[in-house]
Structure formats: structure tokens, C-alpha cells
Amino acid sequence: MTRKRGRGVAAVNYPTGMNLGGDPTQALVHSTPTGNFMVTVSSVDLGQGMKQILRQICAETLGVPSERVVVDTADSDTGPHCMGTFASRGTHRAGNAVIAAAREARGVMLEVAAEMLEVSTDDLETDGAGNIHVVGAPAKAVSVTDTALAAHFQKGRSISGRGMFLVPRSYPSPVDGAMKPATCYAHACTVAEVEVDVETGEVDVISLKNVYEIGRALNPRMVEQQLVGGAWMGISHAIYETTEPYYPQRDHRGVDFNEYLMPGPGNLPRTEVVVLERPAPDGPYGGKGPGEMCANAPIPAIANAIFDAVGVRIDTMPFTPEKILRALRGLEA
């Protein structure tokens, strides 16, 4: 039997945002004459799904279906400023800016509807399906489309809003480092199971059980995309990836996909994900940034599982077969 199994655990937290530089993002929301809504931002979608998430956040805040919201990003001629997509800040910062803009637009929309229905705005609610009605009296209603038409062509109102979310820069104390580096924290705990071949030093990750606490799963399928893909990247970082495998030497560099190793579709462990939600008080509908931290816990969990399996500590990333074999030989010696 040359293959030995082991399992390991790791637990981490992860900061949302880049408070140490000052962290602003803006958004604009406006209605078309027929009651569709444009969100204009300059935030970037890297594949994490920014466009769709901002759409849902805007729709929730306005009280309209998300199909009626279009997100336009990122054109510097039209989109107001955003620091950019990094530091797990996109959903949190841009989401909050969109909420602020959508709230202002909703306020105007309800004022117009209130005039049309001859009630007070306080008496109105949205049904999320495209109508505005009097609280407790769904029949006394006007559609968002008619409201927008009236605003444009009769009332002379612009159903629009401006949103700004700024986390002012935190300056670390030069004496003791006191600072506020982030706004909220996501959490994770991973249990990894591995099999190590003691003859070749190769590690197979058999399973990953990942528990992630992310504030709020704003769109669960998209959260799953991030978490599963991130866990894969964690495995990849743990046992395959580097541009300089013999740091600090600069030789044997991975210069392309022939030489830079990553697990392919044939190297996948059973990756399972459970999500907990403790809403962040300052997050958009409680959301935190889950996209970065999901890669972190699997790495040490795999390192600890390797130790559990074969009794060697690999304290240098990545955990290559060569390092494991050398460590095993050291153990024998």
C-alpha cells in the first residue's frame, strides 16, 4: 500500500474592501419613459457576476422585477467613478452605491404614483412585479410603466437617483498599527481529505468540505459559482501553481500553460459547499465579498491533511511531489 489517506482542517476570515486607501464607488439609476431602469456604473465584471448582482440589488431596492433593470458598465463617459474590482469590494461598495441611487429613484417614483393615486407616499408599496399599490389595498394600484410615462410626459419629473458609497481612508497608527482595514469579514472552514502516494510524492485531493459564511447569498447559484471555482483555485495553489518553483532561484519558470500546472477536469475532488449567512450590517442586503476568500482555507487544510496522511510538514507552497518525497526521505533518515 503506497497511498495513504489523511485529513486536515483550516479556518480563516477575510476582509471586505480596501479601507487603507479610501474606498469610494458611485452609481446612477434612471428610469426610461416606459419604466425600465438603467444602472450606470464603472465597476468591472471579471466573471464574478457584478452586472447581474447589481441588477438584483437595484430591482430589490426599487421594488421592480430584475428583468426591468439594465446594468451599463463600464464606460468612463457615462459611468460615475468606481475604484475598481479588487479587495472583495465590488459587490459591497458598488452594491451600496446602487442601493443609495435606487432609493432616491424609488422616492421620486412613489411621489409620482402618490399624485396619480391621490394618496400619500407613505401609503404606497411596490409588489415587486411591476406595480405600485396602496398598502392593504392591492386593487388601488398603478403600474410602474404608467408611473414612468406620467413622470416623463405629464409631471415633468425625472425618476432617477445618485448613489455614493465611501469608506474613508483609515491611516494605520505608526506606533501600534491601530487601524480599520476593512468593513466586514467573511469566514470559512475547510475539511480536506487527501491521498498521498509515498512512492511518487503525488497528492490527490479526495474531497473538500467547505463551509463559507458570506453575509448573504445575494444570488445563491452565483455564490456557488464563486465558491466552487475558488475552492478549485485553492487546490491549484496548494499542490500545483507557481511561476518560480525554486524561489528564490529564477529557473524552471512556468512560462505558459505547458509548464504552469493547474488541475484539469480529470483532477477534481468531490467539492462540497455549505453556506452560512450572518448579514453584514453595512453590506448590501447583508452581503460580504465571498469571491477571494474561498480559495484560502483549502490550502492549509490540504497541507494539514498531508501531514495527517504521511507525517511530513510541507511549509513551502506549492506542495509538489518533489518536496513531499524529500520530506519523506528526511523522515526516514
Binding site: 459559482q225 466552487v228 471555482g229 478549485w232 483555485m233 484539469g264 477536469p265 477534481l268 467539492t271
Partner: peptide, 11 residues
């Protein structure tokens, strides 16, 4: 190569 999904959803 896919760098985002971890392949499983594609499979």
C-alpha cells in the same frame, strides 16, 4: 482551460 469554474459545472 477554465480559470473560473473549477470545471465541474461544465462537465
Amino acid at each position: 482551460i477554465c480559470r473560473c469554474t473549477g470545471y465541474e459545472p461544465i462537465i
